[in-house]
Each structure stands twice: as C-alpha cells, then as structure tokens.
Amino acid sequence: MRDLLIFFSYRGRLPSQLIGVAATVTLFYYVSRLVKTPEFPTPQDYFAFALIGIVVIRALALSFGGLVGTVRQELVAGTFERMATSPLGPIFGTAAMTLFPLTLSLFLGMATIGFAVVAFDVSLEWATVPLALPVALLAAMTLVPFSLMITAAVIAFKQAGAAVRLFTVIITVVSGFLFPVSLLPGSIRWASDVQPFTPVIELLRHLLIGTPLQGPVIITLIKVLAFVVVLLPLALYLLRASIEWGRRRATLIEY
C-alpha cells in the first residue's frame, strides 16, 4: 500500500510506464517484420514469441532493478531503519517490499499483451488465456527468491545495481526470452535448464500463444514449483544472514 501510494504520488509515472510499454511493443513489431527463419514461419509468429519475452524482461527489470532502487532509497532516507526497528522487522518488511513491483509487473504485462492484441493483431489462445493468470502468479513467485537475494546483497554490500543488470542480461539470454534456447551453443545451453525462467516462459507462451511445450505441462509446472521450494528458503536464509551481518558490523542502516 505504501509503495502504491508513493508510486501514484508521481502523477506521470503510470502514464509514462504505459507509453514505454507501447513504444517497446511497437519497436519489436517492426523489428519482427525482418525475421524470416525456419523457427518462425511468419514475422507475426516471432512477434508473438518476443512479446511474451518482453513481458518477462520488464517483470525482471521491475522486480530486481526496482527493488534495488527502493532498498537503496530506503537506506538513504532512513526509512529502512524504521522498518528494521518495528515489530514487523527487517525480514518480513523486506519480503513485503517485493509485492508491489510484482503486482506492477503483472499489470504492465497484461497492458503489454493487451496493447499488442489491439494494435498489432496478435492472436491469443483464448481457451487457455485464463490459465495464464495463475501461471503468471507462479512466475511471480519464482522472482521472489531472486528479489530477496538481491536485497540481501544490497543490505550487505550497499550496491548491487551493476550485478543485477548483468544478471538480468544473462537470464534474458539463457532463458530464451527473445529467441529460442535451441539457438544457444551447446556449451551454454545447460544454463537454460538450471533456473526457473525457461520453464516459466515456455509455459506462458504455451498458454497465451499456443507455442508447443517440450514436455507435459505437469512436468513443467513441477519444475517451476521445485525451483520456488528450493530457492525461497535459501533466499530467506541469505537475507537473514545479511541482516545479522549488518547488525554485527553496525552497517545495517549505512548506505
């Protein structure tokens, strides 16, 4: 609620985000006109493929970059101290801070797809589109552990912007956000199997635009859930450790 209020206190923020969405989709629409490959029979096929990638990239940027910015801002403004000394405490408080960027990502994702459908005639698999919402929520859950780990890094080292940008680019490449992972050289293709974003985006593409899955839906779902189950406790442990480290070194509220 707090982050929502602050977000809307800047009146131009939402319109500028929506204009950004429209501009990005438009750019990719015209770039996709140049794509004629065996993987994509028509340019429109590539456009639909890349569209889902754009949604996830934006979600990553908002969740990771946005959170780094928010935590830094809170440390500088001294508001992190208020949360850290409250009964809610720094761990739950930080975890709560991941909610707004994820919610905004979901909203902007829907706006991105909606704009592409209306303006560029992207055809959706309407029969399975409703199922995409719970899958999107699950996808959001896969972002939470990474968001918490990034926050742990910011609390411990005070800077994580460059590392987060690098991480986002690497994930974009190895998860096949803008091109199929089958195009990756064998030496790095393994990286697409050891993180949750590849199955998440495959599932979203399958439900939204009908791209075939490499295996049964249930296996892909289990894969995603397994990543969440393993990574969430690890992320919470790292966050707790970084906060305790900050308390011992007296750097918890330094910036």
Binding site: M1, Y10, A77, T79, R82, S86, L88
Partner: peptide, 30 residues
C-alpha cells in the same frame, strides 16, 4: 515495546502525508 526517535531528520517518506505515515507505522507495529 520500543519507540525510537533517531537523531537528525531522516526516516520519513517525503511524498506520504502525515496521516499515511501514522497508518504505515501502525501497520508495521502490527
């Protein structure tokens, strides 16, 4: 059980109202 007023003038969200600050602090005080 502790209230803390730090030195200086930090610790406020510039763009939130006084009432919103109080509501937010009440929420993190559970």
């Amino acid at each position: 059980k502790i209230g803390y007023l730090s030195a200086g003038n930090a610790g406020l969200f510039a763009r939130l109202s006084v009432g919103r600050h109080l509501a937010y602090s009440a929420s993190i005080a559970l």
